[in-house]
Every structure is written in C-alpha cells, then in structure tokens.
Design a protein around this nucleic acid. Structure first.
Lengths: 374, 374
DNA sequence: CTGTTAGCGCGTTCAT
DNA sequence: ATGAACGCGCTAACAG
C-alpha cells in the first residue's frame, strides 16, 4: 500500500518537471480544465468558454486553448459537468426489451444519431413492466438527462409526470398517438394492421386468422386494425380466429400459435401475424404440415425484418422504419437542445406493405365465400 | 448574488418548518443528502454512511435516515457521487455492433446481471473499427467506470493500455485467449469451428465448404478450426472451398455466398457457415435451387439462434452462451468490486454442437471419396 | 472579451 | 459512533 503511494508520487515528480507539454499534470492522473488553462495562459473560465461557446472568445485564445487541449489530451469530466450545470449529456432510452430485433434497430438509429455529438445514449429495458418503467424513469431523473426517448404511448400517469418533470425534450417512439407527452415519432399501428388485413382480403383470402404473441399495446392496436377491416369487409368476424399468447414472440411461438389456431379453425386460409417472428414460425409450421403457402395459406408478417425477404417463399410484411425512427427521435432532441424551432412535434414515420410470395395468390371465384358465413 | 442566497434561505425557512415529511426542500427541486440529514437530525456524513456503510452506524440512526430517505424520496445524485469519489457506477460495454443478435443476447445478460445493483451499463459499438474502439475507450476513461466489458481479444495495444489505465475490473467476452487484459469469459472459437467441421465429416460429408460473412477475428478463428479438421482428416484442403465476403452477415448474404460457392465448386456436399444468419440464408438458397438438405447438402450454422431450431429442416448449429456470458462477466466485475476473491480470471463458457436435421444423413459408402482427391 | 468568485452534491480525510 | 471541513472539476453568475 505504502509502496503504491510512493510509486505514484515518484512518477509524479519525474514527469512533472521533465514534462513540457504532453503531461498529465494532476496527481489524479487526469487532465483538467485548469491544466489546460495554465498551459494556454488563460483563466479557467476562458478555457471553458473557448470549448463551449467559441463565439464569445477571440480566435487567438481559441487557438491557444485548442493547442493546450491537444497537447495535454484534455477530455472533459462528464460528472463535473453534470454536477455544475445540473444537466448531463445523457439521452435516456427506455424500451421494453432487447430480445426483439426491432428495438435493436431503434437503438442503432439512436446511437448513430448521437455519434459525433457529445451526448451519450443510455438504454434501459422495462421488460414490459409498467412499474419498472416508472422506477427507471425515477433513476433517470436523478441524472438530469439531456433528453429522453421512450417506447410507446402507454405510459402510466406517473410515468408521464416523471417525464415532464425532467424538463428536457422527450420523444415517444414506435407509435403515434393523439396526446404526446412532448414529441412523438412512429407509425399508426392500427392503420398498419388495417393495411395488412386489407391486403389479405384483396388477395382473395376470407378466413383470415390473427396470430399474436405477447400482445403488448402496440400489438393490440394492430389487432384492432385487423378487426376494423374484417368488419368493414363484412366478413364474418369470428373471435375464434384470433389466436394470441402472452408468451414472448419467437419463431417457435409462431409455429405453436398456428397449430393451436388450426386445431380450432381448420378452415382458415390466411393469417395476419403480430410480427415477422411469428410469421416465419407459422411458415415453417405450414411447411412441416405440407400446407402450401400462399395457395392454401396466406401469411402476412409485420416489421419486414431482413429474414422475410429471403425465406422460401418470401413473406409479405408491413415494413416499419425503426432505424429511421431512432435517428429522427435523436434529431428532434438535438434540434430542441440547440434552440432550433422544431418543425413538428408529431411525426408519422409511416409504414409500407411489401407484398411478397406468401400472399401472391390470385383471387379466384371459389375463394369468395358468401358474406357473413362463419 | 445576494438575492440568490436570500431566496435559498427563505425557501428553506418556509419549507423547513412547514414541511413535515414529503418535502422537496431545495431550490433545485432536488432532494439531497443534506435534506435527508436535516430531516433525520444527523450530520450529512452520518446520513451518507447510513446509506453507504450501514455497519458503521447505529441501527437507530440507520432507521432514522432510512425514514428520512423514504419520506423525502431521496435518490443520490450520480454525478456528485462520481465527482467526489472519482468513480462512477457505470459499467462500460464495448461491442462491435448491435445488428447482430448475439450481441443483443450478451447485452441482456449484462443488463440482467446489473439489475438490483446500483451500477448502470453503458453500451457503445465500435462498428468493427479499431480506431473507433480506442476513441470510445478514451471517452469511457473520463467517466472512471466501475468496470469494463469488451468484446473479443483483438484489442490494439493502445486499447489494452487504455483499459489497464482505467484501474477497474475489465472482462473480455465472447472468446477466450491466452493473454487476457484482466478477466475473460467466452468460448474457444477455433475449437468450436473444429467441432462443426468434424461433425460434417462424421456425417459423411466430404466436399465441405466454408461460408463466411464479415470475417471478423472471431470468424477467422472458426475458419482456422475448420481448416484444422480438414487437414487432420486428410481431406483435400482446397482454398476454393472457402467463400467469404467482408459484407455484414445476413440471411441475404448467406444465400449469395452459397450461390457464389456453388458457381465455383458445384460438387460441394456441405457447408459450415460462419453463423446462423448465413446458414439460414444458405438453406433458403438450397430450397430455391431444389437442393435437398441434408441429402445433397449438409449445413452447419453457428450460435444456435432460436430460428435454426424450428426451420424446415432444422439446422445443426454450434450453441454458444451469450446471455450467460454477459451475466458471468458482470458477476466477475461485481465480485471484484466487492473485494471478493475471484475464482478464475479466465472462464471457458464452452459450446455445444446441436445436431439437427440439416446434417442428419447417414454416412453411406458412396459418400466417401478417396483421400486427397480435389 | 476576460477574470473572479461561489457553489453543484457528495465522499473523504481528520477530529471528537 | 458521529461531526466539521475540505475539495472533486466544472459552470454560472457577476464584475471589470
């Protein structure tokens, strides 16, 4: 222990006098702003301003400071910054899960959007537990984040209040809704659900099942869209056609769901799946059972993950823009932070139905059952 | 200036007498330790110790402080903690990419391992760029992280030095190697590659190709394992059998790789794929071409993602333990931080070959070509 | 445009 | 077992 200290101090006295430039001048082995200031022959404040608000400083001093920073390898201490300014450089990102690919895409967008800024994303997952979301937000609020990105629009009142009290830009993502906390970017899940169901009808399918895992609020709204369309088309709305499970979505779950639905309704001719995991699982189940897709069974997925575009057959899906959403959310936050006027508080990221082989069946006369038959 | 102070004191004197419990006593609308101390009628230090080192404090005061914390809703300010102690509660996690499912699994393990501790993970991705890794580490070092988790064993010397200078537990993950920076947990990629290749040989395949995307160092070692086995089996080692691309791995890439390899070596009877994305893509390509798997073509993947266990046919893969690895890495760090003796600095997470339908072909006499034929 | 001063909320000596 | 005093590195008022 003693030797330790001694070694440390010895190193000090060795490097400190000898070191001209390129020197960690502090005992903590950390270059601080005061070191930079000393090196540049200016006050600490000036050094700070030269870095933070360069416009308020002479080009000459700016250069001096820049040189000192370079020479000493100065990097600001975020903890000190946060403490002094009561604002951290952290952008909090609250998502329900990391298992789901779509959130990984979102995170990539956020990360990329934050690259080359001095902000840092910080991710947490709620595991779809609302009380956990509140706890996480409480923790975030102690960090005084620069901005917050939260998934979905189903925050509890407590969560909404916490977010508002953070006094920073907040973006809800993955969905749009009528009453954003602050800003929002995503797509209309219900409308997207409608598009999927409508596509199946257009392709001549009539006994259209719904396969859903986990059934979080977003999935619920897609299901609602499916119901909208089936009602509007005056196709028998049969609750038995809706097969869901609280289990997390996965390929295996998808196969299981289809099996269960087939057991109850052997006459279905198509399924709209909650998401692509379920859709691919359903496709595999069809292959196992020798059910021909798209002829005996139409399949539509959701999200348009990479995999559905190269399976055999390829799977029709509703493309959503997760990466772009993450990017946009960050841009909204950055814009607000730089006092720029934000064009829109609510941004519809849209969606796109990508028709593929899994529904590529021409409607034939025989496919059209009489209306309202069960 | 003066008014400032007065305001503060006024608010104090207003809320302090009036406020019995449940009061944000500070001008900043933030409850601090001094508020807790006041409420509990102890000094700030005592309050601090009651929370941090409860053993050094009377059960009575501990209770008083706990009550005050509860009443005021006190949450420590991490920035202040970090500044004062020169240590943050952040565990830095450096991975190459978030696109790859296996890193999402790792992150889940890390997150879960850090739940119910007061440490927070912070993720960054290097995008497989080593200079970027160094930059990221430099940034992390300013945060004085509690621990670091980095992916792989191929850090540059500069990166290794940076990690050592952080003076905190460091765990390399996803691989094991001879010269860990500090601690390490993962599996022997080369050995895993051998297992995959050996399995194909055991199943009677002889013209065994290698399909690899991205080809990061880990993939390179798997390829080396494949070569080891082919040499040892005295099967013709033919570099034309190795088909790689610098492009990121994906299902599409997998199909493309197989196409390219088939164009050059139409006589291959099996492929060992870099990872499961490639393997599934290759399977789809076989389906498109009417190549029967496993009879005309054996396929082995890597990682054993969920999807390969329910595709049709199911795909043989080498299971790796990403989630467990993340969890273990965290546990190693936590153990070190709590001064517990760490059992092993190097932990082999192992792997497991899961044989499935895609290689389920009995070796037949005809499958055995003469040795060393090209 | 630059320097001076006073904290941010906590941990860490050192006394008691 | 408890408390007083100081400072972590930086920003934010204010004064020149």
């Amino acid at each position: 222990m003693k030797t330790y200290i001694i070694v440390k101090y010895e190193m000090w006295s060795v490097t400190s006098p000898a070191g001209n430039m390129k020197d960690k001048t502090s005992k903590n082995n950390t270059v601080k702003l005061s070191d930079v200031a000393a090196q540049a022959n200016v006050s600490v404040v000036t050094a700070s301003r030269a870095l933070r608000l360069p416009d308020l400083v002479t080009p000459a001093t700016r250069a001096k400071v820049a040189a000192a920073v370079e020479a000493l390898g100065y990097v600001p201490n975020p903890a000190a910054q946060a403490l002094a300014s009561a604002r951290s450089k952290i952008v909090g990102v609250v998502i329900p899960s990391l298992t789901n690919q779509i959130f990984a895409d979102l995170l990539r967008g956020v990360m990329d959007g934050l690259d080359d800024t001095d902000y840092t994303p910080q991710f947490v997952n709620t595991r779809y537990i609302t009380t956990r979301e509140e706890d996480l937000l409480r923790i975030f609020s102690t960090q005084r984040p620069a901005g917050m990105i939260v998934s979905g629009i189903d925050q509890t009142d407590a969560a909404r209040k916490l977010l508002q009290k953070m006094n920073c830009p907040v973006v809800q993502v993955m969905e749009i809704g009528p009453d954003p906390i602050d800003m929002i970017v995503g797509c209309d899940q219900r409308e997207a659900g409608r598009a999927a169901a409508r596509h199946l009808i257009d392709k001549g399918y009539r006994r259209i099942g719904f396969l859903g895992a986990r059934m979080d609020p977003r999935a619920q709204r897609r299901l609602a869209g499916y119901r909208d369309v089936l009602q509007a088309a005056q196709i028998a709305e049969d609750e038995r056609l809706v097969q869901t499970t609280p289990k997390p979505s996965s390929y295996t779950t998808g196969g299981q769901l289809l099996s269960d639905l087939l057991a109850r309704c052997p006459d279905i001719d198509a399924v709209f799946c909650n998401n692509d995991d379920v859709a691919l699982g359903a496709l595999f189940e069809c292959q196992r059972r020798g059910i021909s897709v798209p002829h005996q069974m139409g399949i539509v997925g959701f999200n348009d993950l990479d995999v559905v575009s190269c399976s055999v057959p390829t799977i029709t899906s509703v493309r959503t823009f997760r990466y772009q959403t993450g990017l946009t959310a960050v841009q909204m936050i950055l814009a607000r932070l730089s006092k720029q006027p934000v064009a829109e508080r609510s941004l519809d990221a849209g969606f796109e139905l990508i028709a593929r082989q899994s529904t590529d069946r021409l409607p034939r006369i025989g496919d059209w059952p009489s209306i309202n038959q069960t």
